[in-house]
Amino acid sequence: MRARQYPGESSNTPSVAESLHISEHTLRNHLASIYDKLAVRNRIELYVFC
């Protein structure tokens, strides 16, 4: 999973969104959906979960 590498490497939303060629808003929406599905609250918990 390509997106999985980003939470541990950088928590800078603009640079992650740019590298994925999506808007910051889209990235935040995707992260919110992932957080809900995995029952985590932030990128640190997501990184630990992964």
Rank of each mutant, 00 (worst) to 15 (best):
S11Q: 13
R2C: 00
N29K: 14
T13A: 07
K37G: 13
R43M: 06
I34G: 14
T26R: 09
A17W: 03
T26S: 08
L20T: 03
L27Y: 09
S10C: 06
I34Q: 12
A32Q: 06
T13F: 11
S33A: 11
R2F: 13
V48G: 03
Y35H: 12
L20V: 01
H30Y: 12
D36I: 04
R41H: 06
E9F: 01
P7E: 11
L27E: 04
G8C: 00
S11G: 12
E45F: 02
S33D: 15
G8H: 02
V40L: 06
H30Q: 08
H21G: 14
S33I: 00
V48M: 04
C50N: 08
L20R: 10
V40T: 14
R2K: 13
F49P: 09
L20M: 15
P7Y: 02
R28V: 07
E45L: 12
T13M: 14
V16C: 01
P14I: 00
D36V: 05
A32T: 11
P14H: 13
L38A: 05
A3P: 00
N12V: 04
E18Q: 11
H25A: 11
Y6K: 11
G8P: 08
N42R: 04
Y6V: 06
T13E: 10
I22T: 12
E45C: 09
S23V: 13
M1L: 12
N12D: 13
N12Q: 09
P14A: 06
H21C: 08
H30R: 14
E45Y: 03
R28Q: 13
P7M: 02
T13H: 10
A3G: 01
H30V: 09
L20N: 02
N12Y: 15
S23Q: 08
N42Y: 01
I34K: 10
R4V: 14
A17D: 04
N42K: 07
Q5K: 15
C50E: 11
R43H: 01
L46K: 12
I22C: 10
S10F: 02
Q5A: 08
N42P: 00
C50W: 07
